[in-house]
Computed example of a mutant assay.
Amino acid sequence: MKRIIMLTILLFILVGCSTPIEYETASNIRIEDEIIKWDAVEDAISYEVTLNETLYTLSIPSYDISELINGSYTVRITIIYPEGYKKSIDYDFDISRLYQSPTDLLVDDYILSFTSTIPTTYELYINDILKTSFEETSIDISDYVVLNQDSNIKVNAIYESQDYMSDVYIFDGLIHLDMNQSLTYELRSSETIIVNFDQLDDLMYIKIDDEILADTLYSYTSTSITFDKDIFFYPSYGLNTYEVYTASGYFMITINVIETENPHLLSPNVLTYISLEDIELEFNLLGGTFAQLSGYLLETSDYTFEDGTLTIYASYIESILAENPDRENIAFSYQLQKNGNSYIGIIFIYL
């Protein structure tokens, strides 16, 4: 009997003196890279997150909130312990992202793509007219633009009833056809030039230097374009590129206009200045001489002529730009001589 009493007392002491388990709530709650995180709990079986009245069961102490829209939220984080014990804590947080309008608009083979950080629906505007809505950051626009016509394209992102409109992207609607041709023409030739093709769709117009060529200077059939010889008094010596626009796209015809008797400029007479690079132009003197070059504030030390090459120094161009940063071009005149005759030409440099 005494032994039974002693065992009962010992059991009472052991039970009465044991330390109760203290269940922890989530601690060190923070947001990193749009992920709610908290410190892992050693005895936890799993975690639960309750957000917007929806319960999510997790195996790791974190929850992705990147798909939530801007606003204020309360999330309940629950630690699940053995035998079903739970400890919860509420955590309040705000999302206030700063969004930008779509950028980097680009059209490649009629596919419009752009950059956007806004997870939303987008609207396509062509010439300020709403054409369609879509959800990806790219869209086929072939059904919304007109061939060979400029289209002003904008993309609007709508987020929380606010518009984020992109800048205008100008798309020329052109398809470059694989029909380019190159040929040479001697200035004094009396012949016309016929350019042949396997198939030529309806020709709309021809341009050179952004000007439409008079249709009296050429004719065409379904397989050829015939240029009148008078066309070659319009361009300069050297390479001249004609843009041919048809009902299905455009292509280039490059004509190298040469002179076989008198001194002349071989290089194109219209150039674009590249910062800090000298400008070089090739001449064919054919036994003649380079007499002079004239231009705005131009000194003989600003250029050289050696072995048929005229070099205009970049330092001269830079000095003109320093004087007037808004200047758009510089014009030069040159004079060549042969057998007592002078041949004068013009050079345009776009800045």
Rank of each mutant, 00 (worst) to 15 (best):
T121A: 10
T121Y: 10
Y122Q: 01
E123H: 04
E123W: 02
E123V: 00
E123I: 00
L124M: 03
Y125I: 03
I126W: 00
N127W: 01
D128M: 01
I129G: 02
I129M: 06
L130M: 03
K131L: 04
T132G: 04
E135H: 07
S138R: 14
S138C: 11
I139K: 09
I139Y: 12
D140K: 07
D140C: 06
I141C: 07
D143N: 14
V145T: 11
V145N: 07
V145I: 13
V146I: 13
V146F: 13
L147P: 10
L147D: 14
N148Q: 12
Q149Y: 09
Q149H: 10
D150G: 01
D150N: 08
D150Q: 03
S151A: 14
I153R: 02
I153Q: 06
K154V: 11
V155R: 03
V155P: 01
V155K: 04
A157H: 06
A157G: 02
I158R: 09
Y159D: 05
S161G: 02
Q162G: 04
Q162Y: 05
D163T: 03
D163A: 08
Y164E: 05
D167S: 11
D167I: 03
V168P: 01
I170C: 00
I170D: 00
I170M: 00
F171V: 07
G173W: 04
L174E: 11
I175W: 02
I175R: 02
H176Q: 13
L177N: 06
D178V: 10
D178P: 03
D178A: 09
N180K: 14
S182T: 14
S182Q: 14
L183V: 12
L183K: 12
L183E: 13
L183S: 15
T184F: 09
Y185W: 08
Y185S: 08
E186N: 11
L187N: 14
L187F: 13
L187M: 13
R188E: 15
S189P: 11
S190G: 10
T192K: 08
N196K: 05
N196T: 10
D198E: 15
D198M: 07
D198V: 06
Q199I: 08
Q199D: 06
L200A: 15
L200F: 11
D201I: 02
D201Y: 15
D202M: 10
M204V: 04
M204D: 09
Y205L: 14
I206T: 05
I206K: 03
K207N: 12
I208M: 15
I208W: 14
I208N: 15
D210N: 14
D210H: 06
E211S: 02
I212Y: 07
L213H: 03
A214F: 08
D215N: 12
D215F: 06
T216N: 10
T216R: 05
L217S: 07
L217V: 11
L217P: 02
Y218H: 05
Y218G: 04
S219E: 15
S219H: 06
Y220H: 11
Y220R: 00
T221H: 05
T221Q: 08
S222D: 11
S222H: 08
T223C: 00
I225Y: 10
T226F: 06
F227A: 02
F227Q: 00
F227I: 00
D228K: 03
K229N: 09
D230H: 08
D230V: 04
F233G: 13
F233S: 10
